[in-house]
Simulated scan of single mutants.
Amino acid sequence: MTYCPAAHPEDPDPCEGPVAVTILDASNAGVLGCEHHGARLLASLDGGRVYPLPDAPSGAAIRVYRAADGIRPFPWNTTAPRVRADQLSRAEVRAARSM
Rank of each mutant, 00 (worst) to 15 (best):
M1W: 15
T2I: 15
T2E: 14
T2M: 14
P5F: 15
A7M: 09
H8I: 12
H8V: 04
E10Q: 06
P12H: 05
C15N: 06
E16A: 06
E16Q: 09
T22P: 08
I23L: 08
I23A: 05
N28D: 13
N28V: 00
N28E: 15
N28C: 02
G30C: 11
G33P: 09
C34M: 01
R40V: 08
R40N: 14
L42Y: 04
L42W: 03
L45Y: 12
L45V: 06
G47N: 00
V50Q: 09
V50A: 02
V50L: 00
Y51R: 05
L53V: 00
P54C: 07
A56S: 13
P57Y: 04
A61G: 08
I62N: 14
Y65A: 15
A68K: 00
A68V: 01
D69H: 10
I71M: 03
F74T: 10
W76Q: 03
T79N: 11
A80T: 04
V83H: 15
R84W: 11
A85T: 08
A85E: 15
Q87G: 12
Q87R: 02
Q87N: 09
L88D: 05
S89I: 03
R90G: 03
R90F: 02
V93H: 12
V93N: 11
V93P: 10
A95E: 12
R97K: 09
R97L: 05
R97S: 13
R97Q: 12
